[in-house]
Design a protein around this nucleic acid. Structure first.
Lengths: 202, 202, 202, 202
DNA sequence: TATGAATGAGCATTCATTCAT
DNA sequence: AATGAATGAATGCTCATTCAT
């Protein structure tokens, strides 16, 4: 990696970390420059404005955050279905409980709120995060359809079940931010169990 | 209400609305004063600092936000249990989908992130929000225990089931912020259904 | 003393004390009102502006600060002259080393500087303090003239001797402000001794 | 001198002058910037806070203000002692009666009072000024000891004599601030004369 | 590839003062 | 005799941004 690219990367990392600590608006270019070890105007050599830098941070942390990465539908078979859906979810939750991922979750939430604000020039944040969330819902719909095909569950209320799974996963990621400790694996198992055997339409 | 109290209330409301629009830090006293229709220093007649005003906003929106308000355990009987738990949840979700409550949810999320930040003087925000969330989890534990007593469900995995319900409710409140439209009533029904009939311990 | 006069007096005292602690400009009406135990606008009932209050404080602490109070020329005789001039000076210095008088000295110095400033509306401070100082010089001239009449010293350089005494007394009052501890009585005795026996015109 | 250093120096000079005119607290960054001919935030490029700027001004005006600069003990001989001590003092007094030095004296007094105030963050002002004053007292002690060695005066009460000389010099510097015109040279001669021939221990 | 020097806009806060009551 | 409510002006300070080098 060239020196230029190294610096660019350091700016990205420092900014992400600072956003996790102080939020987007309170992370000033002074702080960022200071944290990287360069002078403030030097940032403009790499990003033409703070907005552009923030955009770059957003893209950077969002890339590779997809349903398929964690739940590779193609690998699911009738035999491994139940075990795998549990394991994949547990692995995602474990991964997200590392310090790095807690930072990512915090930063994503910063962007989510930031994207909702009037002053935000870039409404795309909201849309992109929505797309990711929607991707998880759609992913679970596809996955559960496979479960139906395998005869492991009924097709009724399938979309709602998929939503419950997506919601549960999302919220289990967010709870550490509030400081509530949960046995996330157990909750996830319970959610799967409910979905696979639930008799809806009461 | 005296003129003084009216002004104090208007400051509170304007600030809440502005926080929903621009975030806590970007909601400047200039904006607030402007929005209320007074001059900036007048705010100091009512609140001795911005921090104190923000604290007052937080207390104001948090008051009366409790499990018992929405799920009055005492009113639950064997006969009305299933119907009532569904209806109470649906009512909470409907209430929260009003513009006012969307604002409250957004603002609560602002405080949640704000309380996580290093620069924030008042770490109490996080703790108080945690207490409310924990109150919902504990509330559902109690409620489901009653369900067990009524013979409507098994006691196994009860705590995890309670967590799933609390998470689901929380996330259903948050989803509108992302812009995802869900049939929240259907999802809630599905969650209840899963919980009441789920066979855990696979 | 009527309630009105009591309050007026309390304002004066509090302001003096605050000026000693924080200086004239940093002693705000808020602080004064707070210290007195009244509301800020109430001060305007007694003094039509901060300037007028400050003027009143100045007059109050300056009144009774005269040469004659400490060195009553009429009581000086040939027999008691040397002893009395020493004792009177020592008494003045002792008096000024009390906490109250240290405050007065500090406040007088505040006014001295304040009166030198461009922003000061009231140049009279400087003139009045000058008058007091000049009064001490003139007083010592008269006193030493009596000493000459009594045959206790030569008349040559009398004015300069008087100035040395006045200066010495003034500075001995000010030194505690800097924090330098001196045997003020000894220094004063030395000054008198020098003046009474000094052979000028070298 | 680079442009940067020129600006830094101009800020220092303007601030000193403004402190002499308006006092430390009333010398606002706006006034300073205006006086220098730059914008307010530019000051922060050179000094990270008003406090730091004020500190720099203090150090600047205090540097080189020492007893030895005016009374070089090493140059004193038996033959030149009396004449030189008079001349050195007269020269110091003449120097201090220039406009520049009057400003310095006024500013030093501002710092002295400022350092006494509660709100002042930097109590070091008082200590450093005390050190300078103490330096003059100690200097005169050394000088008079030489005078004793030369047989020009008695050793008794030497410290008090030294204090009288230091006080006299100090006060002669301060009197112009009050507006009192004195024949400072004559007063200084008188003080020296008193000290050299005075018979203490009455 | 980076920075030294500078700035306009805006921030939270404090101030002396006013005025109807 | 005193005050509740309000304000215009100013304070120290931070910000993202510019631009010549």
């Amino acid at each position: 990696m060239s020196k230029s690219e190294t610096t660019r990367q350091k700016i990205l990392e420092s900014t992400t970390w600072l956003i996790g600590q102080y939020g987007i608006e309170k992370s000033s270019l002074s702080m960022i420059a200071n944290s990287v070890g360069i002078q403030k105007p030097s940032i403009y050599y790499y990003y033409s404005s703070k907005e552009e830098l923030i955009d770059a941070v957003f893209s950077w942390i969002l890339e590779g955050y997809s349903f398929d990465k964690y739940f590779p539908i193609i690998e699911y078979t009738k035999e491994n279905f139940v075990e795998k859906i549990i394991n994949d979810g547990v692995q995602l939750l474990n991964e997200e409980s590392t310090d790095t991922q807690l930072l990512v979750v915090q930063v994503l939430n910063e962007f989510l709120l930031y994207g909702n604000r009037e002053s935000s020039h870039n409404k795309a944040y909201k849309l992109k995060i929505k797309a990711v969330q929607q991707g998880f819902i759609d992913g679970f719909v596809h996955l559960l359809q496979k479960g139906v095909e395998f005869g492991l569950m009924e097709s009724k209320g399938l979309r709602e079940k998929a939503v419950v799974l997506a919601l549960t996963l999302d919220n289990l990621s967010n709870y550490p931010l509030i400081g509530i400790q949960l046995d996330t694996a157990a909750v996830w198992k319970q959610a799967i169990s409910s979905v696979l055997s639930g008799k809806e339409g009461m």
